[in-house]
């Protein structure tokens, strides 16, 4: 029983961190409709910038974290400006290919700047894990989950209340109609990518603290998809629920199924879930079922 509790609790908390990864993806879909295959790489870049500023440059946390967020927002806006805007009238195929290409660019660029070795992010809190009633949670995971909740609240508010947020919703609904209403599509696109960059900086901090900073973090990019397919490609609430579901599936299958189905089943369990969801409900739990079946 206590094992089940432990697995459930760590699943839920890790799931919040998956939600953070997925949030950057969802924001881009909301703002520009692009399925971004490079969010994993952008997170890796964020983690490297963070690690570099905090260790090599020696910035304190209160300066290093915001600086990284700003740098990554600029990177995001830059990606939109130089890689995607030239393609804005092309097919979705071209845009998606461009994000795959961007992934390749970042994968090459990062080790050229920072080398192949494993880097680290200094720990913000000395204590490494909290324990209540025999259930242990890494400190960083716990506080990150809290941060994710606050962020989600902020984004929820932004998209439902602020002018720019509503404009972004409108653009993702119908680009042409939004444009004819005088919404500045370029601005909306740029803002959504900048947000994705900023979120990636935070995700890079969290995941880099947990796992160390190196190219392996790219693997996380693949886990974005089960989250957003389950939650709906452009739903913020969906990202959280999807994230928690993925966290639970992974944690529980690691606990109970790995021995029977082959070691490492937990790493593909979320992907199998992704396929099942596609079969049953391709627009996800919180997506709008207007996806056309053809």
């Amino acid at each position: 029983m206590s094992e089940l509790m432990q697995l459930t609790v760590s699943g839920v908390f890790t799931g919040m961190l998956y939600a953070l990864l997925a949030l950057g993806f969802v924001v881009v879909v909301k703002g520009s409709g692009v399925i971004n295959f490079s969010q994993g790489e952008v997170v890796v870049l964020g983690a490297f910038v963070m690690s570099w500023l905090l260790t090599d440059v020696g910035m304190p946390f209160w300066l290093g974290i915001p600086t990284t967020v700003v740098v990554m927002m600029l990177v995001g806006a830059g990606i939109e400006r130089f890689a995607l805007r030239p393609l804005q009238n092309e097919s979705m195929l071209a845009l998606v290919m461009a994000t795959i290409a961007l992934g390749s660019v970042i994968r090459g660029l990062v080790p050229m700047i920072w080398g192949d070795g494993l880097r680290s992010i200094p720990s913000l809190i000395d204590q490494r894990r909290y324990e209540w009633l025999g259930i242990a949670i890494p400190t960083i995971t716990f506080w990150s989950a809290i941060m994710v909740l606050i962020l989600l609240g902020a984004f929820g508010f932004f998209f439902s209340r602020s002018r720019l947020g509503l404009a972004m919703q409108a653009v993702s609904d119908d680009r042409v109609a939004a444009q004819s209403l005088g919404i500045n599509i370029r601005l909306v696109n740029a803002v959504s990518w900048a947000m994705a960059g900023g979120i990636a900086a935070l995700a890079g901090f969290v995941w880099g603290s947990l796992l160390g900073v190196d190219h392996r973090l790219v693997v996380l990019g693949a886990l974005i998809f089960p989250v957003v397919i389950l939650g709906g490609l452009e739903s913020i609430v969906g990202a959280v629920i999807g994230g928690i579901a993925v966290g639970l599936v992974e944690s529980l299958s690691a606990g109970y199924l790995n021995d029977d189905l082959g070691a490492g089943f937990s790493t593909v369990a979320p992907l199998i879930m992704l396929l099942l969801v596609l079969f049953v409900r391709p627009y996800g739990l919180f997506g709008r079922p207007e996806i056309e079946r053809v």
Binding site: I35, M92, A222, F225, I229, V268, P282, I291, V294
Partner: peptide
């Protein structure tokens, strides 16, 4: 492929890992 859009890219990414 039953739905419009580039969902195949996502499903095949899963295929790669599986």
């Amino acid at each position: 492929l039953r739905v419009k859009g580039l969902y195949l890219a996502i499903a095949t990414l899963a295929a790669q890992y599986i």
